[in-house]
């Protein structure tokens, strides 16, 4: 299926769930956060789409005024077609349904995105940090992140771009 056909197939089924966003690239489709689990289930199980492989989950911080986003790269082994699903989250309470039980690889992908962006995947059975220590403060890949001053008594020196060591 071509990208156009995939998008049409999705909008036939979920007319109200697809959000029109002109900033997106051709291979991306934005979906409402609250409908994501139903759409994902359909994308996996529909015999014509058959997205049986989740290639990657990425978090994106679009800046202070913009939302946080989760991008899902989906691929079909059967038809060799791909699409990228985009979900936007409210910056103050980023939350979306977990697809960990649809694609099992989503388990670690979601934990990583949670670790770096603090996006909560509701329904994930083991949502812990995966790379940072459990008692880490803050979400490192957010634009407004500021590193903590000390970690277990180890002072983390702050380094400014122009002045060097503080």
């Amino acid at each position: 299926m071509t990208l156009e056909q995939i998008k049409n197939r999705l909008s036939d089924q979920f007319k109200s769930s697809i959000i029109k966003n002109e900033n997106l690239a051709e291979h991306q489709v934005e979906i409402k956060g609250e409908d994501w689990f139903d759409v994902a289930t359909f994308m996996k199980n529909d015999p014509k789409l058959s997205f049986d492989q989740l290639e990657c989950i990425t978090g994106i911080d679009t800046g202070e005024d913009g939302p946080l986003q989760t991008h899902y790269n989906l691929h079909s082994m059967e038809y060799r077609h791909k699409i990228e699903a985009v979900i936007s989250h409210d910056r103050k309470d980023p939350k979306v349904a977990s697809i960990e039980q649809l694609w099992r690889i989503g388990d670690w992908f979601e934990r990583e995105t949670y670790d770096m962006f603090g996006i909560e995947y509701t329904g994930h059975r083991d949502l812990r940090r995966i790379l940072c220590p459990d008692d880490w403060e803050g979400w490192p890949l957010r634009k407004d992140y500021e590193a903590q001053e000390s970690f277990h008594g180890i002072v983390v020196p702050k380094i400014k771009e122009e002045e060097g060591w503080e």
Binding site: P140, Y145, V155, V156, I159, E161
Partner: peptide, 15 residues
């Protein structure tokens, strides 16, 4: 990582 590595210890002699 001395500048932007938020997670890197700046010298093992700190520990």
């Amino acid at each position: 990582y001395w500048q932007h590595g938020y997670h890197v210890l700046k010298g093992v002699d700190l520990v």
